[in-house]
Computed example of a mutant assay.
Amino acid sequence: MKLGAFSVSLNVKDIHRSKAFYENLGFKTLGGDINQNWLIMKNEQSVIGLFQGMFEKNVLTFNPGWDHNAEDVDDFTDIRELQKGLKKKGVTLIEEADESTQGPAHITMLDPDGNPVLIDQHR
């Protein structure tokens, strides 16, 4: 099961303060739009997303089809196959991908401690 690139999506109160804080730790902006209240930042292989006002909790995020630079990879497991495998294992999904479609889709679930897990395929 290839989940793709991993990052932590942080629910921040002030994206400008958060950006400055993580820049002090050596993170650089990889993508996003601060005017839309979201940024993706990277320090070596560590990737975080800063999201202001978009969700309630921090989210563990996986991106099938991407590497840690948000570049396409050829060998990946499609989100719909991941979904089928997880459901066979008895994992309860909060949001499911439409298995009749192709391309971008996402699924969400909660880990045993209530932490949101997002698998978000962009291609």
Rank of each mutant, 00 (worst) to 15 (best):
T61R: 10
F62T: 03
F62A: 05
P64Y: 10
G65E: 00
G65L: 00
W66M: 14
W66P: 08
W66K: 15
W66H: 13
W66T: 11
W66Y: 10
D67F: 08
D67R: 15
H68R: 13
H68G: 10
N69Q: 10
N69M: 09
N69H: 11
N69D: 04
A70I: 06
A70R: 13
A70S: 12
A70D: 07
A70P: 03
E71M: 10
E71V: 09
V73W: 01
V73I: 15
V73D: 05
D75P: 02
D75Q: 14
D75H: 05
D75R: 11
F76A: 04
F76K: 06
F76N: 04
D78I: 04
D78N: 12
D78R: 11
I79H: 09
I79V: 08
I79R: 14
I79C: 05
R80Q: 04
R80L: 08
E81C: 02
E81M: 07
L82R: 08
Q83H: 05
Q83S: 10
K84I: 13
K84T: 14
G85P: 04
G85R: 15
L86N: 03
L86P: 04
L86T: 02
K87P: 01
K87S: 10
K87M: 14
K88S: 11
K88R: 14
G90H: 00
V91R: 07
V91D: 02
V91Y: 07
T92G: 04
T92E: 14
L93E: 02
L93V: 01
L93C: 01
I94A: 13
I94M: 14
E95D: 13
E95Q: 14
E96W: 01
E96A: 08
A97C: 07
A97T: 03
A97K: 06
E99W: 08
E99V: 15
E99R: 15
S100H: 12
T101M: 13
Q102G: 09
G103N: 05
G103V: 09
G103K: 09
P104M: 06
P104H: 05
A105D: 09
A105R: 11
A105M: 06
A105L: 06
A105N: 13
A105C: 05
A105S: 13
H106Q: 10
H106P: 02
H106Y: 09
H106N: 08
I107A: 08
I107S: 11
I107R: 06
I107N: 10
T108P: 02
M109R: 10
L110A: 09
L110I: 06
L110E: 12
L110W: 04
